[in-house]
């Protein structure tokens, strides 16, 4: 259903008639045809094509750790940034970038966000990874310890006494925490 986005979201890239495309295959078998400058933002793709001489334009690069859903999100971000770069090669239009980024993550659930962080890390897109980890931080900064454990799926391995001691040691850091 959603696969149409893969080819249509590049509508903004002009004169795409004979633009070089790179084929990327996600974990669930979907092949994305991605414009070269966008695909090259994925460091793992860039080094794959730089290091292997025998790959051709027909090569489909498998990305077994990236789901189709995460790939849509990744490409939306990379295409937007390529567009900003194309329009203003010198300095990015900061306010526009910020507006895009804010709208971009507002639509993502916590689970989707984590999935994209894993994908951005695997694909080695440091700019996106910094951005997404920053977003995750913003989502937890005022939350309780219990909320954060649930967010990350982390088990509490302190004894009740140890935990109580830590809470006492930094009691001022537990004031003014948001409701879960």
């Amino acid at each position: 259903m959603s696969s149409s986005i893969a080819s249509s979201s590049s509508s903004s890239s002009s004169s795409s008639k004979k633009e070089k495309k790179i084929s990327l295959k996600t974990s669930d078998g979907e092949v994305f045809e991605v414009e070269e400058p966008v695909a090259m933002q994925l460091e793992i793709v860039r080094s794959f094509f730089a290091d292997n001489e025998d790959v051709t334009e027909q090569t489909v690069m498998p990305l077994p750790n990236v789901s189709t859903a995460a790939m849509h999100g990744i490409l939306e971000y990379c295409r937007a940034h390529e567009e900003f770069r194309r329009r203003m090669p010198e300095a990015a239009p900061e306010e526009e970038v910020r507006a895009f980024e804010a709208g971009y993550v507002d639509r993502k659930s916590n689970e989707e966000l984590k999935e994209m962080i894993l994908a951005a890390n695997y694909l080695n897109i440091s700019k996106l990874l910094d951005f997404l980890t920053g977003v995750a931080a913003k989502r937890i900064e005022n939350k309780s310890v219990e909320y954060v454990r649930a967010f990350f799926g982390v088990e509490n391995d302190f004894t009740p006494e140890e935990e109580a001691n830590l809470r006492r040691e930094y009691e001022w850091a537990f004031e003014g925490v948001d409701e879960d």
């Binding site: 005022n142 830590l166 809470r167 930094y170 537990f174």
Partner: peptide
């Protein structure tokens, strides 16, 4: 990476996550 973006005070609280 995620924790490195947090305010110092949140980090003191999250010392008791695990």
């Amino acid at each position: 990476e995620i924790l490195s973006w947090l305010p110092a005070e949140s980090l003191l609280r999250f010392k008791c996550v695990c």
